[in-house]
Design a protein around this nucleic acid. Structure first.
Lengths: 365, 365
DNA sequence: TTGTACGCGTTATCAG
DNA sequence: CTGATAACGCGTACAA
């Protein structure tokens, strides 16, 4: 007698209707329980549950019924152990607490769910060190694929090497690592966005525009700066290093820098800030010092976060579709995992972004 | 010869220095590889890696060295399968995109990490239906414990039954289910908070205060309403159903209701709104209609979200410590899992909250 | 202190 | 179409 049948209580072995035996209290229901119930082999049960073509309609039907009746739940661990795949995607983002990021996550989750993938989400809280820890956890969890938006100050990317070595696809969005070979990036055209934001300010009559941005190791900030300079250049406005303020884009520095700008002489007449929340706080600090927005100083932010619609005056900003980006990222990764699309070469996808003009930058010239 | 040794390449079996055999390219490193390298049994390796007391310092040392050298990663699936535990906690929250929630998550993550637990996070997006799906996923992922803050409109709680049946602890925070037996809840005193917010408005001279809140099936909203009524009662102010507006607390209804309130006759002189973002948008809508805050109408929000500090005027609100709450929740759950603390009876922990007074409600009486 | 042998629940392979 | 059997990698009685 095969080993697995031994688990069956002796007296019940030939009594299919015995409800007490196959499902022991407190024990998980397994394919063996189903198999015993139907007097077939576990192998057939497994096939039936996985829609294997080589199983008759009738048996499949019966298997599903009994599975249902017994409340069977496939054991992911056994399955993952055997299949060497987890059907899980990892996601590492800088912060969960932003409109953009949670839109992206919603998009990723939608696509992942539909494709039968689970998600492990973690935030680096803008710390490279925590990002390394998160990547490590993801690797240990043996995710089938990884989706990343880099932390503020990540420079060394070696924590992704294990993934590359093992052939686990890594795909970046927004805060990407373009110099990394064999990876896919999904971004907006940050240079263009920076250019348009700056040009808009210039067209509104600004001549002395300060640019506040984050760590230039991040593509998003470096490219927006390029766009800013391109616009200045095109309109033959002077540029000096002092016009660019690089800082951590957190709440505290927003207050500090807002106040510092209010004291600048000559007072700048335009601000291009790469973060809405930061811009909102700055604006607040400036108004406290009696500076009128946009009359004295026009402001453009970035991200179209909710806060941009709530501050006074409403903030001109750059909008880009988070949900869409998330869906695209997930779809891309999953297609690759399913072998539909080879992801061999470095690949960059650029999605649309647009300038949303609101009162914070609109003024008569 | 034991079965596992067979995997070893014949010519290498007695040659410990052979680097090619034990670690096959593309293959995972297992405890067998380490065992072969050291000519000991896999059992010893397993014990060594798990700090089992019955293993000599010397062998443990050697095991760790080789593990390090080979880049060994314990296989979670095999381990979980064997141990019947996953060392994973599930977290279901309504929305990731809020200051409060992401603070809580940061707290949970901190404690969970320290205790060696992994996290699976998912958002219900305020939909009961999605919450059910998420709970199901968590159950299939066989989390060791579950942390939940309920969605807006969840009424039926049967999706948590499988957890209770299987003895998996479920712990609620903020949006809890107090009528559920055998579960722990961590909350603030919402009635007290509601009372203090309302009393503050009354003390500022408000006599006709509107309360805007969410679905009263949720404890947080029901209790705040109680507090609101308690304050009115105490100051012998009249109460009618029309003074309470129950609505989905989303962006769109914020605009609508803000405008509706501006047209009310008589115009109310105070608003107590159970959500900062909603309050911020409302305030905006009211100001567009020429209503002065706080002179014509004083406003109190809830949550101390970042937006409350950025709107104009800054919003009086209720602050409660998200990070602390998260740490407490996680610590409680983990203590229970480790068997330190029995979580048998229904148990409620109340943590501190406070009214933060800002300009939106401050006026001369 | 260490080794042996087995089972956790699935799935892949091979043989009917 | 179905069954038997052997892994997947780990942890642990039981034995030595």
């Amino acid at each position: 007698m095969p080993q697995w049948k031994k688990r069956f209580h002796d007296t019940c072995f030939f009594i299919p209707a015995c409800k007490t035996c196959p499902v022991k209290e407190g024990k998980e229901v397994t394919i063996y329980d189903i198999a015993r119930q139907l007097h077939i082999s576990p192998a057939t049960v497994s096939r039936g549950l996985n829609d294997h073509p080589a199983v008759s309609k009738k048996t499949r039907q019966k298997i599903l019924e009994v599975a249902q009746a017994l409340g069977y739940q496939s054991n992911t661990f056994a399955s993952s152990l055997r299949k060497q795949r987890t059907n899980t995607l990892g996601v590492i983002v800088p912060k969960l607490n932003s409109h953009f990021v949670s839109s992206v996550l919603a998009g990723i989750e939608k696509v992942a769910n539909e494709a039968g993938y689970n998600l492990i989400i973690s935030q680096s809280l803008e710390s490279a060190q925590k990002e390394v820890a998160n990547a490590h956890t993801m690797f240990k969890s043996r995710v089938d694929g990884l989706i990343v938006s880099l932390a503020f100050d990540t420079e060394d990317l070696s924590h992704f090497q294990p993934f590359f070595k093992k052939g686990i696809p890594v795909i970046f969005f927004d805060r990407v690592a373009l110099n990394l070979p064999n990876s896919t990036h999904i971004i907006i055209d940050n240079q263009k966005a920076g250019y348009e934001a700056t040009r808009h300010l210039i067209e509104q009559g600004c001549r002395h525009i300060i640019h506040i941005t984050g760590h230039l190791a991040r593509n998003v900030y470096a490219d927006r700066l390029k766009g800013y300079r391109q616009a200045l250049n095109e309109y033959q406005l002077p540029f000096s290093e002092q016009q660019v303020i690089v800082c951590p884009l957190d709440e505290q520095s927003a207050w500090e820098i807002g106040r510092k700008i209010a004291d600048m002489k000559p007072l700048p007449d335009g601000l291009f800030i790469t973060n809405d929340t930061f811009a909102a706080i700055c604006m607040h600090a400036l108004k406290e010092k009696g500076i009128r927005i946009p009359a004295d100083m026009a402001i453009v932010g970035f991200n179209d976060d909710l806060v941009s619609r709530v501050v006074e005056p409403p903030l001109t900003t750059i909008h880009y579709p988070g949900q869409e980006m998330g869906e695209l990222v997930a779809r891309h990764l999953i297609n690759h995992l399913k072998g539909t699309v080879p992801l061999t070469h470095t690949h960059t996808i650029i999605i649309h972004s647009e300038l949303i003009i609101r009162a914070s930058s609109l003024r008569k010239i």
